[in-house]
């Protein structure tokens, strides 16, 4: 097991380094001179050259990369010109909003995915199964920013049931005392029920938007593996021993179908990272995604570069964890790979 772990970690570290090299090289080919940005539009040629040296831009590319990576792991992610503060601090401030949104979205998606897959395998080939399949196709074919806008049109503009794209709280509501940074949790801890309600109401549409893509992905995969399991001999045995259809699906099929679901953890995370950028932008949700889109509009690429680096690291880290969990959950994987 420890050899499996070691080899896996080693190859993952290689991949992450490769990913950062790609990100670095691609972003260094950027049009525009960062030194010019720092020095200001009207700075003299000497001042720009001075800044060029100060930023280490006259070093060879490989040494620039090493410096960038060393800084990156020390938490120095560069300076954001559009907001006038270090990139790292902006990320720290934006992460809780994104975590809150992503947690709500994943919870919804997972619950929906399991329920959908159960319905599908119970009424396989029937109209309900067809509806679940259709919903999965639609979820995978919908641009999250468009779905978010549709929800806003229906529930905000027409019905006026839910708030518009104004972020995490109404302007009249003060943020709860920060503990975790998640407004819903903090309000609950502080016992501020009105704030909790306001935060929850603001969370609904963004979470549904973000969750729908993940749901579509999960339900498709769960349905496929459940339909395969249904053909296994052990199900026949369970049935012949008198367990009902529902009983078999819930108690014998579902647990074994959930196990492979771990393996797509990395894909789910990648999907989350991508879609959160789009969903947050539509809803004005002040998380990491919105930070990045605002930075793109401002041509402030230090922020974008940091985000791309983090995405690469997170995705690879998630893939390692998934592999390890899977190795623990299913001994066959371990044996086969060694």
């Amino acid at each position: 097991m420890s050899r499996f772990l070691l080899r896996r970690t080693f190859s993952a570290v290689l991949t992450v380094l490769g990913g950062t090299v790609v990100a670095f090289v691609v972003m260094r080919l950027l049009p525009g001179d960062p030194a010019r940005l720092v020095a200001g539009e009207f700075a003299s040629a000497e001042a720009v050259a001075e800044q060029h040296r100060a930023l280490g831009l006259d070093e060879p590319l490989w040494s620039q990369y090493l410096i960038y990576m060393a800084d990156f792991f020390r938490g120095d992610w560069g300076f954001s010109y559009s907001l006038g503060e270090p990139v790292f601090e902006q990320f720290v401030r934006s992460v809780p909003a994104t975590v809150e949104l992503a947690a709500a979205a994943v919870t919804l998606a997972f619950a929906g995915g399991v329920i959908g897959a159960l319905i599908s395998s119970y009424s396989r080939g029937g109209p309900l199964d067809a509806a679940v399949r259709a919903s999965s196709y639609i979820g995978l074919g919908t641009a999250p920013f468009w779905l978010g806008l549709l929800l806003l049109i229906v529930f905000f503009e027409r019905l006026q049931w839910l708030p518009g794209p104004e972020g995490r709280l109404s302007s009249s509501t003060a943020a709860p005392p920060p503990v975790t940074g998640l407004h819903t949790v903090d309000a609950l801890l502080a016992g501020e029920w009105a704030t909790l309600g306001d935060a929850a109401v603001h969370l609904i549409l963004p979470a549904v938007t973000l969750g729908f893509v993940i749901y579509a992905f999960l339900v498709r995969m769960l349905r496929a593996s459940m339909l395969e399991l249904v053909r296994e001999p052990y199900i026949l045995v369970a049935r012949s021993k008198g367990r009902g259809r529902w009983g078999v699906i819930v108690r014998d099929v579902l647990p074994n179908a959930l196990l492979p679901a771990i393996t797509v953890g990395g894909l789910v995370l990648a999907e989350l990272l991508t879609s959160t950028v789009l969903a947050e932008t539509v809803f004005g949700w002040p998380g990491v995604g919105k930070l990045v889109t605002d930075a793109i509009l401002q041509q402030d690429f230090a922020v974008v570069q940091a985000f791309i680096m983090i995405s690469a690291c997170l995705t690879v880290a998630c893939n390692i964890v998934v592999d390890l969990l899977y190795g623990i959950a299913d001994p066959r994987v371990r044996v086969r790979s060694s």
């Binding site: 991949t15 992450v16 490769g18 990913g19 990100a23 080919l29 990648a270 690469a312």
Partner: peptide
């Protein structure tokens, strides 16, 4: 290249 979510890679290339 696959270490990134596809849209991030796409974004990086497009920006550069």
């Amino acid at each position: 290249l696959m270490a990134f979510p596809t849209l991030m890679l796409t974004m990086a290339v497009t920006i550069s």
